[in-house]
Computed example of a mutant assay.
Amino acid sequence: MSLIGSGGGYWRYSPLPGGGVKFVTRFDYRARFGRAGRWLDRLLFRPLFGWATAWSFDALRLWLDRGIPPEESLLRAKLHALGIAVLSLCWAYAGLVPKLLYPAASGELELLRALGWFPGAEPAINAALGIGELLLAAVIALRRSRGLLAAQAIALCALTVGATAGTPSLLYAPFNPLTLAMLMLAATFVAVSTRKGLPSAKRCRRQPASRNHKKTEEGQK
């Protein structure tokens, strides 16, 4: 059932001047299942195969350089991805559903009117906040920088304080802005604390140095 029909490759370790090791691997194969298999390979399988190969070799680098075993690298990567996913989904939901799709039913407009900061402009401000939260969700999922995670945590605290100050009765609900903020701050802590020591496919050179070779997957330390 494998998409790979036949293939071959090698691993090569070369000592570097002054210490260190250069590691190069090459693997190529032919896809099965005719034209459909070739298209599936080109669009999905081969890029994923290359990314996973580079990621695993960077996990090997961390094991050799920092003593981080691969199972710990994998656990850190899963926890980091979970934290980022929770943050992105929460921001996306908060921006799309209550602010853009159902602003009247969700009570978002009433919260803005209770603040009294934007008389008459509450619908426009609410829509702008929703679009901003959707953009923030996308940026968090793509960038994952420590500064961005800290900035969104500050924005989260500010929005929570503003909502509860304008309508204190929100704190009596079972699922309120405070409990949501606590969940998202916990996800922020997980994402920030697992950022360091993560394997990354970007640290490996994915193309050969010479243009005369066919496309290969290379990992370098």
Rank of each mutant, 00 (worst) to 15 (best):
R206G: 11
F27Q: 03
P119N: 07
G83V: 08
R146W: 08
I140N: 03
R205C: 09
G132S: 02
K22I: 06
A163G: 08
Q152N: 07
A155G: 15
A209L: 11
L159K: 03
G34Q: 12
Q152P: 04
L87I: 04
L3P: 15
R211C: 06
L87E: 01
T160K: 00
S210E: 08
S88D: 09
A141F: 14
G197S: 10
K215N: 05
R113F: 04
L64E: 10
K221I: 11
L62I: 08
R76P: 08
Y93R: 02
E110N: 06
L3G: 12
P208I: 05
R144T: 09
P69S: 06
L44Y: 11
S145F: 06
K22R: 15
K214V: 05
F57R: 00
F118E: 11
G147H: 04
L3C: 09
K214M: 08
D58F: 02
G9S: 02
A150V: 13
A31G: 11
I68T: 15
A105D: 14
L48N: 01
D28Q: 13
R32D: 12
S6Q: 15
G34E: 15
S106V: 01
K221Q: 13
I131A: 15
A209T: 03
R42H: 10
A127W: 07
A137L: 08
A150S: 14
W63I: 00
E110K: 06
S56W: 00
F118A: 14
P15K: 11
A121R: 12
L89S: 12
L74N: 06
F49H: 14
I125K: 06
A54P: 10
P69V: 03
S200W: 01
A150N: 08
F49W: 14
A94S: 15
L101W: 10
G132K: 01
L135K: 04
L40I: 10
G219E: 10
L171M: 11
E108P: 11
G34P: 14
R30L: 09
D65I: 13
I131S: 12
S56E: 02
R46Q: 02
L75Q: 06
L79N: 08
L43F: 06
A85G: 14
I84Y: 04
R203L: 15
A104K: 12
A163L: 07
S200V: 02
G197M: 07
A163M: 13
D58P: 12
F45Q: 03
D41Y: 01
L75D: 12
P98G: 08
L170I: 04
A141V: 06
H80Q: 04
R35W: 10
G132V: 05
